[in-house]
């Protein structure tokens, strides 16, 4: 068994923005959904989370965006032990994390433009300081003509692109995306990948849960492969993987 260069250990550098130490997680009294995960994501890294449906990809992301808590083990974000972070610090940790939810979670009563601006408003920015950025971002993801539209009137792919725009609008330190190319065609999938790579180039740590083997292969980025709640592989895609 080769030594995993990503595994967290005592000598791990401080630049890990996400660090799992023997972390398990369960929903209520159910058996553990995630088991004994140990890994770390260095600042500026780019990984995919792969694995069959039900393997625990979404659950892993939930731990990082603080929608769930480990039942065991230690989780560090930005060098901070999350379990010990005071309740009033958690909102500020969340603001450094952009999330593309698997089910989008758009606010149906707000226009696409308003939805995209939510993270900036929550962070306390003034409309005049960001309206142009939001418009450019929406144009970039191909929603130029849909800025005024309410989410229920958007097509699946448009919703997805809006969810992505909202996740990246605040220039988060960590970008988490759950099946971000599930509803878009090949062409748009590549565009989205390029956006993520661009953000990553600017320093954002990216973690994307996906079934899309083609996307993973094209990116050339390493994977965390989950099976039945366990991390079975971390690193470059193995030869003949997923075939």
């Amino acid at each position: 068994m080769s030594r995993n260069p990503y595994a967290a250990d005592a000598t791990d550098a401080d630049d890990a923005v996400v660090r799992f130490d023997d972390v398990s997680m369960r929903y209520g009294r159910a058996p553990e959904t995630l088991r004994d995960l140990t890994f770390s994501l260095p600042q500026g890294s780019f990984h995919f989370v792969t694995g069959p449906s039900g393997a625990g990809k979404t659950s892993l992301l939930k731990l990082i965006y603080l929608a769930a808590q480990p039942s065991k083990g230690l989780l560090h974000l930005f060098g901070q032990n999350v379990a010990q972070a005071p309740l009033d610090v958690r909102p500020f940790l969340r603001r450094r994390i952009g999330v593309v939810f698997q089910e989008f979670r758009l606010l149906d009563h707000m226009s696409a433009f308003d939805n995209a601006a939510v993270p900036l408003r929550i962070a306390g920015a003034k409309p005049d300081s960001y309206r142009q950025d939001v418009a450019e971002l929406l144009t970039w993801v191909g929603l130029k003509d849909r800025m005024h539209a309410l989410p229920p009137t958007l097509a699946g792919g448009e919703k997805q692109r809006l969810a992505i725009a909202r996740a990246v609008v605040g220039r988060p330190d960590i970008l988490l995306a759950d099946e971000p190319t599930g509803n878009v065609d090949h062409e748009m999938g590549l565009r989205i990948l390029r956006l993520f790579l661009e953000l990553n180039r600017l320093g954002t740590t990216v973690l994307i849960a996906t079934h899309d083997q083609d996307l993973v292969a094209r990116s050339g980025k390493p994977i965390l492969h989950l099976e039945d709640g366990r991390l079975v592989h971390m690193g470059p895609v193995p030869q003949g993987f997923g075939g």
Binding site: Y65, L66, A67, D88, P91, F92, L93, R94, R95, V99, R105, L107, V118, P119, I122, A123
Partner: peptide
């Protein structure tokens, strides 16, 4: 609930 949850996950403080 969906609004409250989204705001919460996006980093809104409870008081907000």
């Amino acid at each position: 609930r969906e609004v409250v949850e989204l705001l919460h996950l996006t980093g809104a403080e409870d008081a907000f």
